[in-house]
């Protein structure tokens, strides 16, 4: 893999080993998040389809809460997949500058970007947790679910985003941050 080529070029140190170990654990993490995302999306499709049927067939009970459940399922699925997108560089980005940089410059810029990104994800995770506490007194309009639930998913996803940022920062310091999409084509087994 791309990472290994770079890794062998640099002196193997403890930091490299840590990052290598992280990349070996990653498939397990992905199995959980992607597995959950697939289940959530499937639920969204099924619930919406049933709600349409329920509206058309008077004998079936009303499922007007379906819209809320569908929205929460899909938002949760999306949030859980974002950290992986960050790791694989599949989030949309402008590459005019990075394309023109040599490797050292690229690694330095990547490190800077991770520090900046970490500010957003850190705030999101920390204050997301605070929001869970503040808004737990509030309930969703249709399912009557505590609003703590969606905000908790957001806080967890933000923590995972922060983790990816820290790993990428370490990679950049070691000169092994990847350019362009990484392994996005490899199917994730669920």
């Amino acid at each position: 893999m791309h990472d290994d080529d770079v890794a062998t070029a640099a002196p193997p140190g403890r930091a490299h080993l840590l990052i290598d170990r992280y990349h070996r654990i990653v498939p397990v993490l992905d199995r959980v998040t992607i597995g959950a995302a697939v289940a959530l999306v499937t639920t969204g499709v099924a619930v919406t389809a049933l709600a349409v049927a329920a509206r058309k067939i008077p004998a079936l009970p009303s499922m007007s809460w379906a819209s809320e459940l569908t929205t929460f399922c899909l938002v949760a699925a999306v949030l859980l997949v974002v950290p992986q997108g960050l790791r694989q560089n599949t989030q949309m980005a402008v590459t005019v500058l990075t394309d023109r940089l040599g490797d050292r410059g690229f690694q330095a810029l990547t490190a800077v970007n991770q520090v900046l990104s970490a500010c957003l994800f850190g705030v999101l995770a920390w204050f997301g947790t605070e929001t869970v506490l503040i808004q737990q007194a509030s309930h969703t309009p249709q399912l009557g679910l505590s609003m703590a639930v969606p905000y908790l998913v957001l806080a967890v996803a933000a923590a995972l985003m922060l983790l990816e940022t820290v790993v990428r920062f370490a990679e950049a310091l070691l000169g092994r941050a990847p350019r362009g999409p990484v392994g996005a084509d490899t199917p994730v087994e669920v």
Binding site: S64, S67, P141, Q142
Partner: peptide
């Protein structure tokens, strides 16, 4: 088919 706001009570 009556459109109501997204509220459990109204439904």
């Amino acid at each position: 088919q009556l459109r109501v706001p997204g509220s459990d009570l109204y439904v």
